[in-house]
Design a protein around this nucleic acid. Structure first.
Lengths: 261, 261
DNA sequence: CACACGATTACCGATGAACGGTAAGAGCAG
DNA sequence: CTGCTCTTACCGTTCATCGGTAATCGTGTG
C-alpha cells in the first residue's frame, strides 16, 4: 500500500501523526513527533513539511508543531457531529443550568463512546469525559444506553469480547450485562454509580434520530453520595425529547422511552 | 512531490477531497467526488479506499461517502480552537441570552475570518455566519476588529490588496479603512451596518490572550433597523473581558479596551 | 571555551507504490 | 433492450517515497 518497509500508506502515517496530538500533548518538536509515532526521522520531516504546506499542521514561534486550524475547519465543515451538537446544545444548557455538574453528549464509534459535547461548571466534580474524548462502552452510562439500543447483532459481537472491570460495580459478565441492558430499555435510562471513577455517578438517556434509531446519549455526571440521583432523570428525558425533535424525530415512542415512575 | 502528473502530493489531494464536503454537500458518490475535486476517477477511488480504511471517510448505507467522525475527533483533540471555544461558550451564552439574535466568535486565519462558534435562536435574522465558515475580513465587524489589532506589517500587506465592495457601506479604500481601524482601536469596538448583507448589522469587540494580543473577536448580529444598536456594546465588552480572563489574560488594558461613550 | 547533545536540514540511491489509462461488471431508467 | 452512470478490476510505466548517513545549527554544561 506504500513504499514504506512497514507497508503502510501515507494516509495511515498521516493519521498516526495527527493522533500524536491530544490535549496533553498539543505541541511538540518534529523529532519528538517522530519518536511518538515510531516513524523514521527523515520520513517524519518530509511528511510534516507537506502538512505544514497545506496548513494541516502549524509551526509555533518556538518552532514546535501543532495541529492547524485548517485541520479543524475541514473536519468540521461537513461533519455530522456538528449538526448533532448544534441541535443538542440549547437543551444541554438547560440541563446544565439545573443539574450544575457536568452534561455530556456521546455517540457510539468504533466500539467506544465518543463525546461530542460537554458542558461543565466550577462545581464540576471528578469527570474524565472530554470533548472528542473516548471511554469504554460497558463502563459508562452513555455507553450502556447506546449499547442497549443497538442492533442485536452488534450487541452479540460486543458482549463476546472480554471486558475490563474498572471498579467493583462494573458489570463484565455477558448475562448480567444483557439483563442490565433490558432494564435500561424498559426504564428508559441508565444509572451507573462509580463505574470508572468510584466518586461519581452517571445517568444517561437515549436521543433519537429521524428513523427512530438512537443516535446519541445525553448524560449527566453527579457526585455518587448525592441522594436520589435518579431525580435527575425527568430533566434528562425532557431534554432528550427536545433534541430528538430538533433532529427530525417524529415517531412516537415504542415503549422504550417512557416516563419512569 | 508526488507521482501524479500534476506534481501534487497525496496530502494535497487529501485536502482537496476533504474540502469537497461542506454543509451544502455533506455526502456524495465517489464519482461525483472525483468530478468536484478534478481528480482522475481511478485515483479518487484509490485514495478514498485508503481514507475509508482509516475511517477518515465513511460510507453511508446508500453507498455515498461522507466525512468520518474519526476525522472530527482527530482534528478536535489537539486543536487550539477547542480551548478557545470552551473558554468562550459560557460568556457567549450570557450575551446570547440578552441580545437574542446571533452571537459569534471568530479568529483571523489565512486573511479571512474563521468562525469558531456561533449561537443563534429562532429569532435569528439573516446571518450568513456558520461554524467553521469563512467571511472576508474587511466586510465583517469581527474581521475589522481582528485587523485593527494585528501587527502593522500585516495590516500593510492586507490593505495593499484589492478589496471587494459588497454593499454601499463596505470600505475598500486603504486610507479610509486605516482611519476606521484607528477608530475601532480607540472606541474598543467595531459596528458595521449592512456590510455584506444590507439588512443586518454586526458589532464586534476584541478578545485578548495571555500575552495581551488579540486572539479572537466576539460579535453579535442584529437587525439593521434596530435603534441604537451600540447599546449592545457594554454587554459585549464585559463578556469579552470574561473570556480573556478565562484565557489567562491578566494585563491591564493599555488604552485599547476602554468603556466607550 | 570546548564539548556534548539534540533538533533540523541536506543529500542520495534503490525500490515499489502511486498513477491513471482502459475496460469489464453492476445497477438503474426510459 | 439500450443507454447511462457508478463502481471495480487489471496493468505497465514512472517518479516520488523511503530511510539511511552526514553535515549544520542551536543550546545548555562542565
Amino acid at each position: 500500500m506504500a513504499n514504506s518497509t512497514s507497508g503502510e500508506s501515507i494516509i495511515g502515517r498521516f493519521v498516526r501523526i495527527v493522533s500524536a496530538f491530544d490535549d496533553r500533548h498539543p505541541a511538540m518538536s518534529v523529532a519528538e513527533l517522530g519518536r511518538r509515532t515510531g516513524l523514521p526521522v527523515t520520513t517524519t520531516y518530509r511528511i510534516v513539511k507537506d502538512l505544514l504546506f497545506e496548513r494541516l499542521l502549524e509551526r509555533e514561534p518556538g518552532g514546535e508543531i501543532r495541529l492547524g486550524t485548517r485541520m479543524w475547519e475541514l473536519a468540521s465543515r461537513g461533519s455530522r457531529t456538528l449538526g448533532l451538537r448544534e441541535a443538542a446544545l440549547p437543551f444541554m444548557e438547560d440541563v446544565q443550568a439545573v443539574v450544575q455538574h457536568s452534561t455530556t453528549l456521546g455517540i457510539l464509534d468504533s466500539d467506544e463512546v465518543l463525546y461530542i459535547e460537554r458542558l461543565a461548571s466550577d462545581r464540576t466534580i471528578v469527570d474524565i469525559t472530554k470533548i472528542a474524548g473516548r471511554l469504554p462502552v460497558h463502563a459508562t452510562s452513555s455507553g450502556l444506553v447506546l449499547l442497549a439500543h443497538s442492533p442485536a447483532s452488534y450487541q452479540d459481537s460486543f458482549l463476546a469480547r472480554p471486558l475490563t472491570k474498572f471498579t467493583e460495580t462494573t458489570l463484565t459478565e455477558p448475562a448480567a450485562l444483557r439483563r442490565h441492558l433490558a432494564e435500561i430499555r424498559q426504564r428508559g435510562f441508565a444509572a451507573m454509580p462509580g463505574v470508572i471513577v468510584p466518586e461519581s455517578s452517571g445517568i444517561a438517556v437515549p436521543v433519537f434520530g429521524q428513523d427512530n434509531t438512537v443516535v446519541a446519549a445525553l448524560s449527566v455526571v453527579v457526585p455518587r453520595h448525592e441522594e436520589n440521583a435518579s431525580a435527575r432523570v425527568p430533566v434528562l428525558l425532557a431534554a432528550a425529547r427536545g433534541i430528538s425533535r430538533a433532529l427530525g424525530w417524529r415517531g412516537e415512542l415504542k415503549g422504550t422511552l417512557r416516563q419512569s415512575h
